[in-house]
Each structure stands twice: as C-alpha cells, then as structure tokens.
Amino acid sequence: MSETPDETATAGAAAEAGAAPTIGTAPASGAAATTPAPMKIDAKLGLDVFKLDKEPHIVIDHEICRTVCAKKVCLTVCPADLYELDDSGDVIVNWEGCLECGTCLICCEPQALSWKYPRGEYGVQYRTS
C-alpha cells in the first residue's frame, strides 16, 4: 500500500516534466523516456479489502481446458490479471484477488470454469466504488 502515493506522485511529476519539450513535435506516446511506470496490478489489488475463504470459489476443469480450449482468453480478459500458466502449461487462477466481475466466466467459451460467488461475507469488500 505504501507504494501508492509514490507511484502516483511520480506519474504526475514525470508527465509534467515530459510535456514541455515534446509540444508540437512528438505524438502522445512519444514521451516514452518520461512516461512513468504504471502502478502494478498487484499493488492495485493490494488497496482493496479482501476477506479470504479457505476454499477457492473458482475451479478450473483442466481436462476441458487442455483438450477443448484453443485460445486461453482468461489470460487476458481478467481485469485483475489473476490467470496464468504454471510450469506444466496448465492455466491456474489466483482466485484470492478476484474482483467478482464474472468476466472470465462469461468469456470462457468451453465453460471450463466452475465459478460461484464466494460464501457470504467473504471475497472483496468495496468501500468507495
């Protein structure tokens, strides 16, 4: 959590510093040297309140995942970036940081996900959204 102020402060300062010399000559993305590193997704999730259950609320059917699924869209659609490949190439999900939007469930065409909401009082608890 402590990285937040630093990173956003850097974002502002760098944008300001980058503005002057690039006016009129560079495309918007041209200020590459001064573009601040975006806040990491893990740091963003670190700002949220999660109450963790012992059991995962998302379970992947690896058989379907391995044999039916050609395009692992779960790896890219999740706004919390929770899906990744393990060493053996299987998809795994770090369900603890789930924002409960359901995007993976809706986008998984072969229906390889058993996806339910966490049990009552568990999971993310938004305070300011």
Partner: peptide, 11 residues
C-alpha cells in the same frame, strides 16, 4: 489525476 492517490480498484 496528477497528485492523486489510488485508493481502490474495482470491476
């Protein structure tokens, strides 16, 4: 958003 502090991320 300059100077702003991110306090929550939601979807």
């Amino acid at each position: 958003i300059k100077g702003g502090e991110v306090i929550e991320y939601s979807a």
